[in-house]
């Protein structure tokens, strides 16, 4: 275990050390006190444990690394993540996993507004509630919410799948409730067990695109 204390190391030194890690390395980071851009741009399969609350843009652009934050995260958590896993034991602020292409983001507490905005393949599992405008223009991947969802869920959504266990305050334009078929139950079950959430798949409803706002109609190909 390599310990890095942010009382002594700068954020730049921290990120250089983490980015230079080898497969299987384990890091423990302390004294975070809400600092920004911790553990960003990692491209190797390392384990990072961050003890304390973090500020803006933690775990941004993550590839392959497994990052656990024992605390709350500020805005822009795991933005544009490509792969790997990021887990927060507390809450996350706005636009968690925005534009993220892959990997798994687990937020054990609540996530505030714009969670998964423009998500492009990431899977997000939230143990609590999510705020308004979540999954706005979500393109692909899954957003699993074990609590309630705020206003305008999935506005202008493309092909991402949204699973919500609690209430949805309102659905955004072109987002509708959809049938939960076996393939969805299987997918959801896998995400719940991967993220260590103990709810049953039957408790969830699925939401997705009505495909009226965006569609490609072959009969109108000349119009494009």
């Amino acid at each position: 275990m390599i310990e890095i204390n942010l009382d002594k190391s700068s954020v730049r030194e921290l990120n250089e050390k983490l980015q230079g890690g080898s497969v299987g390395d384990k890091f423990s980071i302390n004294n975070t006190v809400g600092k920004h851009a911790l553990s960003v741009g990692l491209t190797t399969d390392v384990d990072v444990e961050i003890n304390g609350h973090v500020g803006y843009y933690c775990a941004g652009m993550n590839q392959k690394a497994n990052i656990v934050i024992n605390g709350n995260a500020g805005p822009g958590l795991a933005e544009n993540m490509m792969s790997g896993e990021v887990r927060v034991t507390g809450n996350a602020s706005q636009y968690a996993a925005a534009t993220a292409h892959g990997g798994l983001l687990v937020i054990e507490g609540d996530s505030s507004s714009r969670c998964g905005i423009s998500m492009k393949g990431v899977n997000i599992v939230v143990g609590g509630n999510i705020g308004h405008m979540s999954a706005f223009m979500a393109q692909s991947g899954c957003l699993v919410v074990c609590g309630d969802a705020g206003d305008a869920l999935g506005d202008s959504i493309y092909e991402a799948k949204l699973y919500v266990r609690g209430k949805v305050k309102s659905l955004g334009t072109d987002c509708i409730e959809k049938e939960m078929r076996d393939e969805h139950k299987k997918e959801l079950q896998q995400l719940l067990s991967q993220s260590k959430m103990s709810h049953g798949v039957e408790e969830f409803r699925r939401y997705g695109s009505a495909r009226k706002l965006y569609n490609f109609d072959i009969d109108q190909v000349d119009d494009y």
Binding site: G34, H53, N72
Partner: peptide, 8 residues
């Protein structure tokens, strides 16, 4: 505005 101010 940010937690880091409260952390003090």
């Amino acid at each position: 505005s940010e937690y880091r101010a409260i952390a003090t």
